[in-house]
Design a protein around this nucleic acid. Structure first.
Length: 204
DNA sequence: GGTGTGATCGTA
DNA sequence: ACGATCACACCA
């Protein structure tokens, strides 16, 4: 089916509602002189801004997290652990922070270019199964922070594949604060090998 | 399959 | 000091 861009209104909601609907959407990165790279999103996490201790926005706006406080439908990219980039979809209305972390993708197009950008790995399932792996495979870094997902060089599409009617769900990964047992704000496509390693692909 | 650890640096 | 991580070593 033909790819259709998601309207701005799709993003302008609570990230916990946006996140599960992002599953099976198509993320496409294009750069001049290079073939497009596309993945189908299979794992995401919601971060609820000012009321979420785990969110970068919890302690207010800074130069680093400013994009999260801007209008919805843009890419928030941050640097972490001294070496990795992670990408989020900005949600909520302008002035309200909220985002969905993109944690895993199934390679669809430009797979050879993804391999070239991920020279250290040997298995196809490691190409984009993890937030920093995904940005590496797409060539996304800090210079892409603030990119418009509706009209920029990194875009999100609906290709007609519906989100799972019963997605996998769990608490979020890698947090030391802000995670209650009731807060299961991670969603993933069940039994898909491109979810983060060492974590359930078909559970709850 | 699982666990443990070094790498590496911007941010607060 | 620490982090919304990764890759590899090692053990089972």
């Amino acid at each position: 089916m033909r790819r259709r861009r998601l309207p701005r209104t799709f993003y302008a909601r609570d990230p916990r509602r946006v996140a599960p609907e992002l599953l099976n959407k198509v993320l496409v990165h294009t750069a001049p002189g290079l073939e497009p790279v596309a993945v189908r999103l299979v794992e995401v996490e919601a971060y609820c801004g000012s009321r979420d201790p785990a969110s970068h926005a919890f302690r207010g706006q800074t130069p680093r997290n400013a994009t999260m406080f801007g209008p919805p439908g843009f890419l928030y990219v941050y640097f972490t652990y001294g070496m990795h980039w992670c990408a989020n979809v900005v949600c909520e209305t302008d002035g309200v922070a909220g985002a969905v972390l993109l944690r895993g993708g199934q390679p669809l197009e430009g797979v050879d270019l993804m391999w070239a950008r991920r020279p250290k790995i040997s298995r196809a399932r490691d190409l984009a199964s993890g937030p920093a792996r995904l940005t590496q495979a797409l060539g996304v870094t800090g210079v892409d922070d603030g990119t418009d997902l509706v009209g920029g060089h990194v875009r999100l599409y609906d290709d007609g594949t519906a989100p799972p009617t019963r997605p996998g769900r769990s608490t979020r990964i890698g947090l030391r604060v802000g995670e209650g047992d009731r807060d299961r704000w991670r969603w993933f496509v069940r039994d898909n090998p491109n979810v983060s390693p060492g974590r359930p692909t078909g559970g709850r």
